[in-house]
């Protein structure tokens, strides 16, 4: 049994304006297929990815929210945001597309420490 490296993906980019958000989830899904434990942290502008009721039909783009909702099907369930970031954009958990784990901002350091690799998008 090979030990699989755990990976933390830090998402700092808003969806739709660039392809970073989608690329990040592509990496997350691929890591899951190789059975690597994946954690996702959405901070700063990355938090905008999680807002619910997205309908990008007029942009001719795929719905980011749909891809996010596939994460549990790929057994990716460790999804973190900070309470401070959520408060700073004036939204609550009810405005989010999926259940997340709320952490305090000062817990970011231990998330980085706990994982073998860190990627940022």
């Amino acid at each position: 049994m090979i030990d699989k490296k755990s990976i933390l993906i830090i998402n700092q980019s808003a969806p739709y304006g660039s392809s970073k958000a989608r690329e990040s989830l592509d990496v997350a899904l691929t890591c899951s297929i190789f059975e690597m434990p994946v954690s996702l942290l959405f901070i700063g502008d990355g938090l905008y990815q999680l807002i619910n009721n997205q309908s990008p039909d007029a942009l001719n783009m795929k719905k980011h929210e749909a891809m996010l909702s596939a994460l549990p099907m790929y057994d990716i369930e460790k999804i973190y945001i900070t309470e401070e970031d959520l408060e700073s954009i004036g939204l609550t958990e009810n405005d989010l597309a999926m259940p997340v784990t709320l952490i305090q901002r000062d817990a970011i350091a231990s998330l980085i420490q706990q994982n073998d690799s860190v990627l940022t998008f």
Binding site: L29, S32, I33, K62, K63, A66, M67, S69, A70, M73, Y74, D75
Partner: peptide
């Protein structure tokens, strides 16, 4: 229709 993705093997099995 739900996820706008074709499932890979692992999520296919789960679905």
């Amino acid at each position: 229709q739900t996820y706008e993705l074709s499932p890979a093997m692992r999520p296919l099995v789960k679905a």
